[in-house]
Design a protein around this nucleic acid. Structure first.
Length: 418
RNA sequence: GCGGGGAUGGCCCAGGUGGUAAGGCGACAGCCUGCUAAGCUGUUGGCGCUUUGCGCCGCGUGGGUUCAAAUCCCACUCCCCGCGCCA
Protein backbone atom coordinates (compact mmCIF):
# COMPACT_ATOMS: atom_id res chain seq x y z
CA UNK A 1 0.00 0.00 0.00
CA UNK A 2 1.37 3.37 -0.88
CA UNK A 3 0.73 6.41 1.29
CA UNK A 4 -2.48 8.18 0.25
CA UNK A 5 -0.64 11.43 1.07
CA UNK A 6 1.74 10.66 -1.77
CA UNK A 7 -1.22 10.53 -4.12
CA UNK A 8 -2.76 13.71 -2.74
CA UNK A 9 0.40 15.79 -2.67
CA UNK A 10 2.63 14.40 -5.41
CA UNK A 11 0.44 12.41 -7.82
CA UNK A 12 3.05 12.87 -10.54
CA UNK A 13 5.50 10.62 -8.73
CA UNK A 14 2.87 7.88 -8.65
CA UNK A 15 1.93 8.53 -12.26
CA UNK A 16 5.55 8.27 -13.38
CA UNK A 17 5.96 5.03 -11.45
CA UNK A 18 2.90 3.47 -13.08
CA UNK A 19 4.16 4.54 -16.47
CA UNK A 20 7.50 2.86 -15.86
CA UNK A 21 5.68 -0.32 -14.91
CA UNK A 22 3.86 -0.10 -18.24
CA UNK A 23 0.54 0.12 -16.47
CA UNK A 24 -2.43 2.35 -17.17
CA UNK A 25 -2.72 5.56 -15.19
CA UNK A 26 -6.49 5.39 -14.93
CA UNK A 27 -6.17 3.47 -11.66
CA UNK A 28 -4.56 6.53 -10.14
CA UNK A 29 -7.26 8.91 -11.36
CA UNK A 30 -9.88 6.60 -9.93
CA UNK A 31 -8.18 6.64 -6.53
CA UNK A 32 -7.99 10.43 -6.59
CA UNK A 33 -11.69 10.71 -7.43
CA UNK A 34 -12.68 8.17 -4.76
CA UNK A 35 -10.55 9.94 -2.17
CA UNK A 36 -12.13 13.30 -2.91
CA UNK A 37 -15.59 11.83 -2.67
CA UNK A 38 -14.67 10.12 0.59
CA UNK A 39 -13.40 13.31 2.17
CA UNK A 40 -16.44 15.29 1.06
CA UNK A 41 -18.83 12.70 2.45
CA UNK A 42 -16.90 12.39 5.70
CA UNK A 43 -17.03 16.13 6.27
CA UNK A 44 -20.79 16.12 5.73
CA UNK A 45 -21.24 13.26 8.16
CA UNK A 46 -19.06 14.89 10.79
CA UNK A 47 -21.24 18.00 10.64
CA UNK A 48 -24.41 15.93 11.12
CA UNK A 49 -22.88 13.94 13.95
CA UNK A 50 -21.91 17.15 15.66
CA UNK A 51 -25.53 18.32 15.62
CA UNK A 52 -26.76 14.99 16.90
CA UNK A 53 -24.24 14.94 19.73
CA UNK A 54 -25.16 18.43 20.81
CA UNK A 55 -28.86 17.53 20.95
CA UNK A 56 -28.23 14.27 22.77
CA UNK A 57 -26.29 16.12 25.40
CA UNK A 58 -29.15 18.58 25.89
CA UNK A 59 -31.74 15.85 26.39
CA UNK A 60 -30.26 14.65 29.65
CA UNK A 61 -31.38 17.77 31.48
CA UNK A 62 -34.04 19.44 29.44
CA UNK A 63 -37.78 19.91 29.94
CA UNK A 64 -38.39 19.63 26.21
CA UNK A 65 -37.31 16.01 25.92
CA UNK A 66 -40.12 14.97 23.58
CA UNK A 67 -39.31 17.58 20.96
CA UNK A 68 -35.54 17.09 21.18
CA UNK A 69 -35.78 13.32 20.96
CA UNK A 70 -37.85 13.36 17.80
CA UNK A 71 -35.54 15.94 16.27
CA UNK A 72 -32.51 13.83 17.12
CA UNK A 73 -34.13 10.74 15.68
CA UNK A 74 -34.53 12.49 12.36
CA UNK A 75 -30.88 13.45 12.24
CA UNK A 76 -29.86 9.93 13.26
CA UNK A 77 -31.80 8.56 10.31
CA UNK A 78 -30.06 10.76 7.79
CA UNK A 79 -26.70 10.00 9.40
CA UNK A 80 -27.34 6.27 9.00
CA UNK A 81 -28.12 6.75 5.33
CA UNK A 82 -25.01 8.82 4.73
CA UNK A 83 -22.87 6.37 6.70
CA UNK A 84 -23.85 3.50 4.49
CA UNK A 85 -22.85 5.66 1.50
CA UNK A 86 -19.53 6.37 3.17
CA UNK A 87 -18.90 2.71 3.78
CA UNK A 88 -19.37 1.95 0.09
CA UNK A 89 -17.10 4.82 -0.92
CA UNK A 90 -14.51 3.78 1.65
CA UNK A 91 -14.42 0.21 0.40
CA UNK A 92 -14.04 1.42 -3.16
CA UNK A 93 -11.25 3.80 -2.18
CA UNK A 94 -9.39 1.12 -0.24
CA UNK A 95 -9.75 -1.47 -2.95
CA UNK A 96 -8.53 0.98 -5.61
CA UNK A 97 -5.62 2.14 -3.47
CA UNK A 98 -4.57 -1.39 -2.61
CA UNK A 99 -4.26 -2.13 -6.33
CA UNK A 100 -1.68 0.57 -6.88
CA UNK A 101 1.74 -1.13 -6.91
CA UNK A 102 4.72 0.24 -5.04
CA UNK A 103 6.58 3.32 -6.20
CA UNK A 104 9.74 2.25 -7.93
CA UNK A 105 13.11 3.65 -6.91
CA UNK A 106 14.74 6.09 -9.36
CA UNK A 107 17.73 3.84 -10.06
CA UNK A 108 15.58 1.03 -11.48
CA UNK A 109 16.19 0.58 -15.23
CA UNK A 110 13.21 1.07 -17.49
CA UNK A 111 12.05 -1.97 -19.43
CA UNK A 112 9.22 -4.22 -20.53
CA UNK A 113 10.48 -7.77 -20.16
CA UNK A 114 13.30 -9.95 -18.83
CA UNK A 115 15.33 -8.91 -21.86
CA UNK A 116 15.53 -5.40 -20.43
CA UNK A 117 17.01 -6.52 -17.12
CA UNK A 118 20.49 -5.09 -16.68
CA UNK A 119 23.36 -7.40 -15.90
CA UNK A 120 25.54 -5.80 -13.26
CA UNK A 121 27.92 -8.57 -12.28
CA UNK A 122 29.24 -12.02 -13.12
CA UNK A 123 30.87 -14.37 -10.67
CA UNK A 124 32.64 -17.69 -11.16
CA UNK A 125 34.04 -19.32 -14.23
CA UNK A 126 31.91 -21.38 -16.51
CA UNK A 127 33.89 -24.60 -16.92
CA UNK A 128 34.46 -25.87 -20.40
CA UNK A 129 33.68 -29.57 -20.31
CA UNK A 130 35.22 -32.06 -22.68
CA UNK A 131 31.90 -33.86 -22.99
CA UNK A 132 28.39 -32.75 -23.85
CA UNK A 133 26.72 -31.70 -20.57
CA UNK A 134 23.38 -33.29 -19.72
CA UNK A 135 20.49 -31.39 -18.23
CA UNK A 136 19.33 -32.02 -14.65
CA UNK A 137 16.48 -34.25 -15.76
CA UNK A 138 18.78 -36.77 -17.45
CA UNK A 139 21.31 -36.61 -14.64
CA UNK A 140 18.69 -37.00 -11.92
CA UNK A 141 16.82 -39.83 -13.60
CA UNK A 142 20.04 -41.72 -14.30
CA UNK A 143 21.05 -41.45 -10.63
CA UNK A 144 17.51 -42.19 -9.46
CA UNK A 145 17.32 -38.89 -7.58
CA UNK A 146 13.74 -38.12 -8.48
CA UNK A 147 10.64 -39.74 -9.85
CA UNK A 148 8.54 -37.44 -11.95
CA UNK A 149 6.36 -39.96 -13.75
CA UNK A 150 4.93 -41.41 -10.57
CA UNK A 151 4.48 -37.93 -9.11
CA UNK A 152 2.40 -37.15 -12.20
CA UNK A 153 0.32 -40.26 -11.55
CA UNK A 154 -0.29 -39.32 -7.94
CA UNK A 155 -0.42 -35.51 -8.05
CA UNK A 156 -0.32 -34.41 -11.68
CA UNK A 157 2.10 -32.44 -13.79
CA UNK A 158 4.81 -30.35 -12.14
CA UNK A 159 5.27 -32.52 -9.07
CA UNK A 160 8.16 -34.78 -8.08
CA UNK A 161 9.32 -37.35 -5.61
CA UNK A 162 12.82 -36.63 -4.33
CA UNK A 163 14.69 -39.87 -3.68
CA UNK A 164 17.94 -41.25 -2.32
CA UNK A 165 20.86 -38.82 -2.18
CA UNK A 166 18.63 -35.98 -3.39
CA UNK A 167 16.93 -36.15 0.00
CA UNK A 168 20.25 -35.75 1.76
CA UNK A 169 21.32 -33.08 -0.68
CA UNK A 170 18.24 -31.09 0.32
CA UNK A 171 18.96 -31.57 4.00
CA UNK A 172 22.59 -30.60 3.43
CA UNK A 173 21.56 -27.42 1.62
CA UNK A 174 19.20 -26.53 4.44
CA UNK A 175 21.86 -27.04 7.07
CA UNK A 176 24.48 -25.22 4.99
CA UNK A 177 22.22 -22.19 4.53
CA UNK A 178 21.08 -22.00 8.14
CA UNK A 179 24.64 -22.29 9.43
CA UNK A 180 25.76 -19.45 7.19
CA UNK A 181 22.76 -17.25 7.94
CA UNK A 182 22.99 -17.83 11.67
CA UNK A 183 26.46 -16.28 11.53
CA UNK A 184 24.99 -13.20 9.87
CA UNK A 185 22.40 -12.68 12.56
CA UNK A 186 19.36 -14.33 11.00
CA UNK A 187 16.86 -16.03 13.28
CA UNK A 188 16.05 -19.47 11.86
CA UNK A 189 12.34 -20.11 11.43
CA UNK A 190 10.06 -22.82 10.13
CA UNK A 191 6.81 -20.92 9.54
CA UNK A 192 3.27 -22.09 8.85
CA UNK A 193 2.66 -22.70 5.15
CA UNK A 194 -1.08 -22.16 5.41
CA UNK A 195 -1.95 -18.57 6.18
CA UNK A 196 -4.99 -16.38 6.27
CA UNK A 197 -5.76 -14.20 3.33
CA UNK A 198 -4.65 -11.01 5.10
CA UNK A 199 -1.07 -12.30 5.13
CA UNK A 200 -1.07 -12.69 1.34
CA UNK A 201 -2.80 -9.37 0.90
CA UNK A 202 -0.35 -7.72 3.26
CA UNK A 203 2.75 -9.01 1.54
CA UNK A 204 1.29 -7.97 -1.82
CA UNK A 205 0.49 -11.37 -3.30
CA UNK A 206 -3.17 -10.41 -3.28
CA UNK A 207 -4.98 -9.04 -5.16
CA UNK A 208 -2.14 -9.10 -7.70
CA UNK A 209 -1.39 -12.83 -7.84
CA UNK A 210 -4.77 -14.43 -7.21
CA UNK A 211 -4.42 -16.98 -10.02
CA UNK A 212 -1.14 -18.28 -8.61
CA UNK A 213 -2.53 -19.20 -5.20
CA UNK A 214 -3.90 -22.48 -3.89
CA UNK A 215 -6.82 -22.01 -1.50
CA UNK A 216 -8.36 -24.28 1.07
CA UNK A 217 -12.02 -24.68 0.27
CA UNK A 218 -14.40 -23.31 2.86
CA UNK A 219 -11.70 -21.80 5.03
CA UNK A 220 -9.82 -18.56 5.21
CA UNK A 221 -6.54 -20.34 4.50
CA UNK A 222 -4.19 -20.31 1.55
CA UNK A 223 -1.04 -22.27 0.78
CA UNK A 224 1.84 -19.83 0.65
CA UNK A 225 4.02 -19.48 -2.42
CA UNK A 226 6.97 -18.39 -0.31
CA UNK A 227 7.95 -18.03 3.36
CA UNK A 228 7.95 -14.28 2.71
CA UNK A 229 4.22 -14.42 3.45
CA UNK A 230 4.31 -15.86 6.97
CA UNK A 231 7.59 -14.09 7.81
CA UNK A 232 6.19 -10.73 6.76
CA UNK A 233 2.85 -11.19 8.49
CA UNK A 234 4.54 -12.50 11.63
CA UNK A 235 4.90 -9.01 13.08
CA UNK A 236 1.67 -7.57 11.68
CA UNK A 237 -0.05 -5.10 13.97
CA UNK A 238 3.08 -4.78 16.04
CA UNK A 239 5.30 -1.89 16.98
CA UNK A 240 9.05 -2.45 17.21
CA UNK A 241 11.36 -0.40 19.32
CA UNK A 242 13.98 1.25 17.08
CA UNK A 243 16.54 -0.64 19.15
CA UNK A 244 15.18 -3.98 17.89
CA UNK A 245 15.83 -3.07 14.25
CA UNK A 246 17.07 -4.32 11.93
CA UNK A 247 15.56 -7.75 12.51
CA UNK A 248 16.62 -10.67 10.30
CA UNK A 249 14.70 -13.91 9.78
CA UNK A 250 15.50 -16.95 7.68
CA UNK A 251 12.50 -19.16 7.05
CA UNK A 252 12.53 -22.66 5.61
CA UNK A 253 9.26 -23.70 4.08
CA UNK A 254 7.56 -25.59 1.36
CA UNK A 255 6.14 -23.27 -1.30
CA UNK A 256 3.05 -23.84 -3.41
CA UNK A 257 2.36 -22.16 -6.72
CA UNK A 258 -0.28 -22.94 -9.32
CA UNK A 259 2.07 -21.63 -12.05
CA UNK A 260 -0.95 -20.42 -13.97
CA UNK A 261 0.19 -18.83 -17.19
CA UNK A 262 3.45 -20.77 -17.28
CA UNK A 263 2.15 -23.39 -19.69
CA UNK A 264 4.87 -24.79 -21.86
CA UNK A 265 7.68 -23.22 -19.83
CA UNK A 266 10.18 -25.52 -18.12
CA UNK A 267 7.82 -28.45 -18.35
CA UNK A 268 10.46 -31.04 -17.65
CA UNK A 269 12.15 -31.81 -14.36
CA UNK A 270 12.06 -29.98 -11.08
CA UNK A 271 12.91 -26.45 -12.19
CA UNK A 272 9.34 -25.09 -12.26
CA UNK A 273 6.96 -27.04 -10.07
CA UNK A 274 3.81 -26.62 -7.99
CA UNK A 275 5.54 -27.53 -4.76
CA UNK A 276 9.12 -26.88 -3.73
CA UNK A 277 11.19 -26.04 -0.69
CA UNK A 278 13.00 -22.79 -0.10
CA UNK A 279 14.91 -20.86 2.51
CA UNK A 280 13.87 -17.26 2.39
CA UNK A 281 15.46 -14.27 4.12
CA UNK A 282 13.30 -11.48 5.47
CA UNK A 283 14.34 -8.18 7.06
CA UNK A 284 12.54 -5.51 8.99
CA UNK A 285 14.52 -2.28 9.19
CA UNK A 286 14.51 1.50 9.62
CA UNK A 287 13.47 3.43 6.49
CA UNK A 288 16.82 5.20 6.27
CA UNK A 289 18.61 1.86 6.23
CA UNK A 290 16.62 -0.11 3.69
CA UNK A 291 18.78 0.72 0.69
CA UNK A 292 21.99 -0.34 2.40
CA UNK A 293 20.24 -3.40 3.87
CA UNK A 294 19.17 -4.30 0.35
CA UNK A 295 22.77 -4.29 -0.89
CA UNK A 296 23.80 -6.30 2.14
CA UNK A 297 21.02 -8.80 1.53
CA UNK A 298 22.17 -9.31 -2.05
CA UNK A 299 25.71 -9.90 -0.83
CA UNK A 300 24.48 -12.49 1.66
CA UNK A 301 22.64 -14.34 -1.09
CA UNK A 302 25.68 -14.13 -3.38
CA UNK A 303 27.95 -15.58 -0.70
CA UNK A 304 25.68 -18.61 -0.40
CA UNK A 305 26.10 -19.37 -4.11
CA UNK A 306 29.81 -18.54 -4.03
CA UNK A 307 30.18 -21.04 -1.19
CA UNK A 308 28.59 -23.66 -3.40
CA UNK A 309 30.87 -22.76 -6.30
CA UNK A 310 28.04 -22.11 -8.71
CA UNK A 311 28.77 -19.51 -11.39
CA UNK A 312 26.12 -16.83 -11.54
CA UNK A 313 25.31 -13.34 -12.67
CA UNK A 314 23.39 -10.59 -10.94
CA UNK A 315 20.79 -8.60 -12.85
CA UNK A 316 18.90 -5.53 -11.84
CA UNK A 317 15.28 -6.26 -12.66
CA UNK A 318 13.72 -3.68 -14.96
CA UNK A 319 10.67 -1.60 -14.06
CA UNK A 320 8.19 -3.66 -16.07
CA UNK A 321 9.13 -6.92 -14.37
CA UNK A 322 8.93 -5.75 -10.76
CA UNK A 323 6.35 -7.36 -8.50
CA UNK A 324 3.70 -5.13 -6.95
CA UNK A 325 5.45 -4.82 -3.59
CA UNK A 326 8.99 -4.27 -4.81
CA UNK A 327 10.48 -0.82 -5.28
CA UNK A 328 13.70 -2.36 -6.53
CA UNK A 329 14.81 -5.92 -7.20
CA UNK A 330 17.93 -7.89 -7.98
CA UNK A 331 17.90 -11.41 -9.36
CA UNK A 332 20.72 -13.89 -9.12
CA UNK A 333 20.82 -16.23 -12.09
CA UNK A 334 22.87 -19.40 -11.88
CA UNK A 335 24.57 -20.75 -14.96
CA UNK A 336 23.06 -24.06 -16.04
CA UNK A 337 25.41 -25.99 -18.38
CA UNK A 338 22.53 -28.25 -19.45
CA UNK A 339 20.62 -25.25 -20.80
CA UNK A 340 23.72 -23.17 -21.53
CA UNK A 341 21.87 -20.28 -19.93
CA UNK A 342 21.68 -18.23 -16.77
CA UNK A 343 18.44 -18.98 -14.91
CA UNK A 344 16.85 -17.29 -11.91
CA UNK A 345 17.60 -18.81 -8.52
CA UNK A 346 17.33 -15.76 -6.25
CA UNK A 347 15.06 -12.77 -6.13
CA UNK A 348 16.08 -9.99 -3.74
CA UNK A 349 13.63 -7.12 -3.19
CA UNK A 350 13.32 -3.91 -1.26
CA UNK A 351 9.65 -3.23 -0.55
CA UNK A 352 10.13 0.02 1.39
CA UNK A 353 7.03 0.59 3.56
CA UNK A 354 4.61 -0.98 1.07
CA UNK A 355 4.09 -4.24 2.96
CA UNK A 356 4.44 -2.56 6.35
CA UNK A 357 1.48 -0.29 5.57
CA UNK A 358 -0.68 -3.21 4.54
CA UNK A 359 0.34 -5.25 7.57
CA UNK A 360 0.54 -2.36 10.07
CA UNK A 361 4.13 -3.04 11.06
CA UNK A 362 5.59 0.01 12.75
CA UNK A 363 8.38 1.11 15.03
CA UNK A 364 8.83 3.75 17.67
CA UNK A 365 11.67 6.01 16.63
CA UNK A 366 14.35 7.51 18.84
CA UNK A 367 12.28 10.69 18.85
CA UNK A 368 9.28 8.77 20.15
CA UNK A 369 6.97 8.85 17.15
CA UNK A 370 5.54 5.80 15.45
CA UNK A 371 6.41 5.13 11.82
CA UNK A 372 6.20 2.28 9.34
CA UNK A 373 9.21 -0.04 9.04
CA UNK A 374 10.72 -1.04 5.73
CA UNK A 375 10.76 -4.69 4.68
CA UNK A 376 13.08 -6.62 2.41
CA UNK A 377 13.16 -10.19 1.26
CA UNK A 378 15.43 -12.44 -0.68
CA UNK A 379 15.76 -16.05 -1.58
CA UNK A 380 18.59 -17.69 0.32
CA UNK A 381 18.48 -21.13 -1.24
CA UNK A 382 15.67 -22.30 -3.48
CA UNK A 383 16.34 -25.97 -2.90
CA UNK A 384 15.18 -27.52 -6.14
CA UNK A 385 16.60 -24.86 -8.44
CA UNK A 386 19.89 -24.93 -6.56
CA UNK A 387 19.88 -28.70 -6.84
CA UNK A 388 19.46 -28.32 -10.58
CA UNK A 389 22.45 -25.96 -10.64
CA UNK A 390 24.56 -28.36 -8.58
CA UNK A 391 23.69 -31.38 -10.69
CA UNK A 392 24.45 -29.60 -13.93
CA UNK A 393 27.60 -27.80 -12.78
CA UNK A 394 29.12 -30.70 -10.88
CA UNK A 395 28.27 -33.49 -13.35
CA UNK A 396 31.10 -35.80 -14.44
CA UNK A 397 31.59 -37.61 -17.69
CA UNK A 398 30.86 -40.97 -16.04
CA UNK A 399 27.38 -39.73 -15.00
CA UNK A 400 28.22 -39.16 -11.36
CA UNK A 401 27.95 -35.79 -9.61
CA UNK A 402 30.52 -34.33 -7.26
CA UNK A 403 29.20 -32.87 -4.03
CA UNK A 404 30.24 -29.23 -3.54
CA UNK A 405 32.92 -28.96 -0.83
CA UNK A 406 30.72 -26.92 1.47
CA UNK A 407 28.06 -29.64 1.49
CA UNK A 408 30.29 -32.68 1.93
CA UNK A 409 30.32 -32.53 5.72
CA UNK A 410 26.52 -32.56 5.72
CA UNK A 411 26.20 -35.21 3.01
CA UNK A 412 28.82 -37.51 4.41
CA UNK A 413 30.08 -38.17 0.90
CA UNK A 414 31.99 -36.48 -1.91
CA UNK A 415 30.21 -37.93 -4.86
CA UNK A 416 26.73 -39.00 -5.89
CA UNK A 417 26.70 -42.06 -8.12
CA UNK A 418 24.75 -45.20 -8.81
C1' G B 1 -15.08 -30.06 20.52
C1' C B 2 -16.81 -28.78 25.96
C1' G B 3 -16.52 -25.59 30.44
C1' G B 4 -14.41 -21.22 32.76
C1' G B 5 -11.57 -16.49 32.44
C1' G B 6 -9.99 -12.49 29.37
C1' A B 7 -9.24 -8.53 25.06
C1' U B 8 -9.43 -0.60 26.88
C1' G B 9 -4.23 4.46 23.61
C1' G B 10 3.36 2.36 22.94
C1' C B 11 2.92 -0.82 27.64
C1' C B 12 0.15 -1.79 32.44
C1' C B 13 -4.55 -1.08 34.29
C1' A B 14 -9.62 1.40 36.20
C1' G B 15 -14.56 2.12 34.65
C1' G B 16 -19.35 -2.23 34.03
C1' U B 17 -26.57 0.10 38.19
C1' G B 18 -26.14 3.64 29.98
C1' G B 19 -24.78 10.54 29.83
C1' U B 20 -19.57 10.64 26.02
C1' A B 21 -12.38 7.12 28.54
C1' A B 22 -9.41 7.93 34.87
C1' G B 23 -4.68 6.67 36.66
C1' G B 24 0.32 4.65 36.34
C1' C B 25 4.76 3.44 33.39
C1' G B 26 7.58 4.65 29.31
C1' A B 27 8.70 8.39 25.57
C1' C B 28 9.13 13.51 23.94
C1' A B 29 9.35 18.93 25.03
C1' G B 30 10.10 22.73 28.59
C1' C B 31 11.43 24.35 33.67
C1' C B 32 14.55 23.70 37.87
C1' U B 33 19.17 21.80 39.59
C1' G B 34 26.74 23.42 38.77
C1' C B 35 26.72 15.93 37.85
C1' U B 36 23.06 11.14 32.58
C1' A B 37 19.65 11.49 39.77
C1' A B 38 15.22 13.52 41.97
C1' G B 39 11.32 17.08 41.24
C1' C B 40 7.68 20.32 38.52
C1' U B 41 4.67 21.49 33.96
C1' G B 42 2.90 20.16 29.30
C1' U B 43 2.43 16.71 25.21
C1' U B 44 2.06 11.60 23.90
C1' G B 45 -4.62 6.85 19.21
C1' G B 46 -6.76 7.70 14.09
C1' C B 47 -9.17 10.88 10.60
C1' G B 48 -11.32 15.28 8.33
C1' C B 49 -11.68 20.56 7.70
C1' U B 50 -12.33 26.88 6.31
C1' U B 51 -5.59 23.80 10.33
C1' U B 52 -2.30 29.15 16.52
C1' G B 53 -8.06 26.24 15.93
C1' C B 54 -12.74 23.34 15.27
C1' G B 55 -14.91 18.75 14.90
C1' C B 56 -15.66 13.55 14.17
C1' C B 57 -14.33 8.60 15.15
C1' G B 58 -11.95 5.25 18.64
C1' C B 59 -12.60 0.53 24.56
C1' G B 60 -11.05 -7.27 20.06
C1' U B 61 -14.54 -7.68 15.22
C1' G B 62 -19.54 -7.32 13.21
C1' G B 63 -24.61 -6.47 14.22
C1' G B 64 -28.79 -4.92 17.60
C1' U B 65 -31.53 -1.93 21.57
C1' U B 66 -31.44 3.59 22.80
C1' C B 67 -32.11 10.53 22.03
C1' A B 68 -27.33 8.54 23.97
C1' A B 69 -23.34 2.20 24.49
C1' A B 70 -16.55 0.77 26.92
C1' U B 71 -21.09 -0.12 29.84
C1' C B 72 -27.15 -3.73 27.93
C1' C B 73 -28.36 -7.87 24.04
C1' C B 74 -26.77 -11.33 19.87
C1' A B 75 -23.03 -13.53 16.74
C1' C B 76 -17.93 -14.18 15.70
C1' U B 77 -12.35 -13.96 16.27
C1' C B 78 -8.09 -14.43 19.11
C1' C B 79 -5.45 -15.34 23.85
C1' C B 80 -5.12 -17.91 28.85
C1' C B 81 -6.66 -22.14 32.25
C1' G B 82 -8.93 -26.99 32.74
C1' C B 83 -11.24 -31.38 30.22
C1' G B 84 -11.66 -34.31 25.76
C1' C B 85 -9.36 -35.81 21.09
C1' C B 86 -4.72 -36.42 18.82
C1' A B 87 0.76 -36.96 15.36
Amino acid sequence: MIDIELIRKTPDIVRESLRKRNMGESALDEVIAADEEWRKTLTEINQMRKERNELAREIANSNERERLISETKEIADSIAKKESDLKTIEEKRFSLLSRIPNIILPSVPYGKSDDDNVEIKRWGTVKTLDFEPKDHVDIGLALDLFDIERAAKVSGARFFYLKGDAVFLELALVRYAFDALLKEGFVPVIPPVLTREFALFGTGFLPFGEENIYRIKGEDLCLVGTAEVPLGAMHSNEIFSHKELPKYYAGFSTCFRTEAGAHGKDTKGIFRVHQFDKIEMFKYCLPEESESEHEKLLQTAERLYQGLGIPYRVVEVCSGELGASAAKKYDIEAFLPGQKEYREVVSCSNCLDYQARRLMIRYRSKEGDIKFVHTLNSTAIAIERTMVAILENYQQEDGSVLVPKALQQFMGKERIDK
